[in-house]
Design a protein around this nucleic acid. Structure first.
Lengths: 241, 241
DNA sequence: CGCGTGATTGATGTCCTTCAAAGAGGGTGG
DNA sequence: CCACCCTCTTTGAAGGACATCAATCACGCG
């Protein structure tokens, strides 16, 4: 982590960026060291408690963020209160467009979350300078589009049982990518959130969870902690393939 | 078609592009005349009958297309036959990524459709040369992401009545943008397609259509032709705002 | 301990599906 | 030109999956 070799000039990677996931897979991976230093001047780290909106009320509304830790839920609400979660963002995802667009989406921390925020203007300038950065953003939006469309199939055509299994499988594959073995994780969402994500009610989610438990597909501890003995069985229950 | 005037140098806008929607709002609007000429060398126009896949079977699978006319439906299918339409594309939308990605989406002409296809390699090269082109593509993917998420709310939280009204409103706003007045249009989708788009059955779609008709919100002629006397009432029925 | 929030479980209701049949064009061939 | 058929759509009756309403449980905290 501290390979100090200093190619030639006096600039080096900002300390906060060194262990940052975004510096690797994320947006910042497209930047040179000097660009990273520049961006870092204007960036700020923030911690967001579960249930709070990501858009800092004191902060400038027009800002972008990288998720460093935690899970953020993107949701849409109808005027009568009906709500639908339309996406989950994990580290090191980039968030930014959702806020300002015509499409009214709210971003809220599902778990305790840490983000790195930048003023919109600085990032916009860098995007103009660094084509790879826009490419990376484009790439993420395509990934999100794929995920959204996958979820449309889940929402429109799957049974409650398959929906809940699909959700568990989604979390599983984000927590523990490529797991053919026994896995264990904490759910980042409450039952109410899961219901809003799946287009169901809390009660139905609960019932389907206990059914999956009784079928031996999952083991539940403390309401939030889940063990998946065999991810293939979960996949099957989710109607995938 | 053969207006040979030659401004000053020897290049000019290809004839086929002149009246093309994509040259204006679409992807090609970012290109210079010479780039357009270059791209046009490798492009081909194709007519696709309703119900046929957009990916030409004889054509190279890895190709991009602009929609010139008609409506294309993007859909996903489960192994047991359940199907969900995850998006509709209208002229002058660009299509290209859907095919090759990991996410298995099939693109099929909903109506008689005309497309302008390009080999993937040529477009990829141009995207690398022209940052505005990538910007345009990025922009479209963000637009599609918004639409997908809007639809997730529809799929997850709206009633059958609201779903059907939402679909009609979607078509209305694509056919006749900004219409506060009486509008009339042909549905680009069959009842079966509408059902697959809304996550419903054919019968339910039919029932809700007749209900909307009996409530005076729409007038139906010949199963496909729809008249909307008051788009605000339709909006309301769709649960929008 | 009592309270509050979130989750589970049960009883009942309802919206949408499923199954079934009939109606409405549209094209073909006699 | 009309009979026939094919596909798409509509309409009806019955059933089921999920929602709603309501009570209980489980855990954490003052």
């Amino acid at each position: 982590m501290d390979t100090y070799k200093k190619p030639s000039p006096e600039i080096e990677t900002p300390a906060v960026c060194r262990s940052c996931e975004a510096r690797h897979g994320g947006i910042c991976s497209t930047l040179t060291v000097s660009q990273l230093v520049e961006l870092n001047k204007y960036s700020a780290r923030r911690r967001i408690d579960a249930g709070n909106e990501v858009i800092g009320q004191g902060e400038n509304v027009s800002s972008y963020s990288n998720i460093l830790k935690g899970v953020v839920k993107l949701s849409k609400m109808m005027s009568d209160g009906r709500q639908q979660i339309v996406g989950l963002q994990f580290a090191p995802d980039f968030m930014g467009r959702p806020f300002l667009g015509e499409s009214t989406i709210t971003a809220e921390a599902a778990t305790e979350t840490e983000v790195c925020t930048f003023p919109r203007s600085v990032v916009d300038r860098m995007v103009a300078e660094v084509p790879e950065m826009e490419h990376k953003l484009y790439d993420q939006s395509l990934k999100e589009l794929d995920e959204a469309r996958d979820w449309m199939l889940t929402l429109g055509r799957k049974t409650a049982q398959e929906k809940v299994a699909s959700f568990l499988y989604l979390i599983l594959s984000h927590i523990d990518p490529e797991s053919d073995h026994r896995s264990t994780f904490d759910l980042p969402l409450s039952r109410a959130d899961i219901a809003d994500f799946l287009g169901l009610t809390i009660e139905t989610v609960s019932r389907q969870m206990t059914k999956l438990r009784k079928d031996g597909i999952i083991i539940i501890e403390n309401n939030r902690h889940v063990i998946v003995p065999d991810s293939d069985r979960l996949r099957e229950a989710a109607g995938i393939d």
